[in-house]
Design a protein around this nucleic acid. Structure first.
Length: 170
DNA sequence: GCCAACGTTGGC
DNA sequence: GCCAACGTTGGC
């Protein structure tokens, strides 16, 4: 019997993501001020976003930090995923806005990962600028009706946005 | 399983 | 504040 070739993980690690947050509830400056500039990304209550977060994200992945419901709407920096997924404690907290009585602690529905700030961009890359960049026209963020709060970003999109931000390392 | 009603997101 | 898009709920 032929020996199986050494299993190699897919070559495209780290993967890239975009995380949305309303700065009125948690901004990139809040993250910058947090202990170890790290927080748990809680409150995700959409199954598709949950699946990305729980099943596809890996430690070491990078993500853009996007301010939604804000002025300006913009990508404002980058974070690193620094934990595997674990159950979202806010789902079990009756007093929490994200409390979900249907989520069973023995079989949790909702998950979080820990994210650590890598950098706040010297200036935000606004939605206006993203929209006017031809090579980003396929970006999920910019698609009509796109509401996912955790979404994948391609390596090309990642590079392009960093260039727009005027940074080389993220 | 269908679908109408409702709630939420989030850009404008 | 408006409203389009989308997800969820629940009656049937």
């Amino acid at each position: 019997m032929a020996k199986a070739k050494t299993a190699k993980p897919p070559a495209h690690r780290p993967a890239y993501w975009l995380l949305k947050s309303e700065p009125d509830s948690y901004s990139i400056d809040d993250l910058r001020a947090a202990p170890h500039q790290t927080t748990l990304w809680d409150g995700v209550r959409n199954y598709q976003a949950r699946n990305f977060l729980r099943d596809t994200m890996r430690i070491g992945d990078r993500a853009f930090y996007y301010h939604s419901g804000a002025d300006p709407l913009a990508i404002v920096g980058t974070v690193e995923i620094v934990s595997a997924a674990y159950p979202d404690p806010t789902a079990f907290d009756k007093r929490d806005h994200h409390y979900d009585p249907k989520s069973d602690p023995e079989n949790p529905t909702w998950f979080v990962v820990d994210v650590k700030l890598r950098q706040k961009f010297p200036h935000p890359v606004t939605r206006e600028v993203l929209k006017s960049t031809k090579s980003l026209e396929g970006m999920m963020l910019l698609q009509r009706g796109s509401r996912l709060s955790v979404q994948p970003v391609t390596p090309q999109e990642w590079k392009t946005v960093l260039a727009l931000a005027g940074v080389t390392d993220a």
